[in-house]
Amino acid sequence: MEEEYEPVRLLKQTPRSSVRLVRHRSSGKRFILRQFTGNGEVYQKLVGLSCPNLPLIMEAAERDGDNLVVEEFIEGDNLGFLLEGALFTPRETRDIVRQLCQALWVLHSMTAVHRDIKPENVILRGKDAVLIDFDAARLHKPGAETDTQVLGTTGFAAPEQYGLSQSDVRTDIYSLGVLINVMLTGEHPSKKLAEGHMGRVVQRCTQVNPHKRYKDVLHLMEAV
């Protein structure tokens, strides 16, 4: 890698991970190079897929828990930066949220949860909103025993307390609800809730009880 690529800049560094922008020396193409310790299964699953609202994962390799990921560099501004200057209109917000729902649908349908949805992890590339950074994502594989019990539920108990896998998917819906609110008001919904229909969508997304939230991102898309 060092022979073929030159570092452009260090974008993020933590004790367990680093994210670098690198340039392919001969072609000039730019890529994101991620190195992190942990579970890289989600990146490995994304290698064979393409979705306009997710970065292309070019390669994902793992050895003894150390992961190296080569990822498409998404040119654009992240929502966090854009929100420093202005808020979004309800229409703009709807367009972006729908696309994020599509990105999450891809992740959720491969039993992965993103777990770190925030303005800094959404990049606007022209009209496309692209969800990035799956370092915190994980595949949700409930133990067979747990799932057996979930599936065996007889129906009279409050489902939010079953501990079923859907709860984890709905953590993304919760975060997305907060993001919607921040895009419209600049504030967390507990401080200032967005007005009108979108406010009601935010309320439903951010219910403490996961089962009072939208069941999945397709339902959220419909509501939005």
Binding site: S26, L49, S50, C51, L218, E222
Partner: peptide, 26 residues
Amino acid sequence: EASFCPYCAEPVNARKEIHPPRHMPR
């Protein structure tokens, strides 16, 4: 098993395009 050629920076794997369903109004 490479998905990507590090020498020429071109993808070498088949990639499945995902088009999430649009949820029909109920």
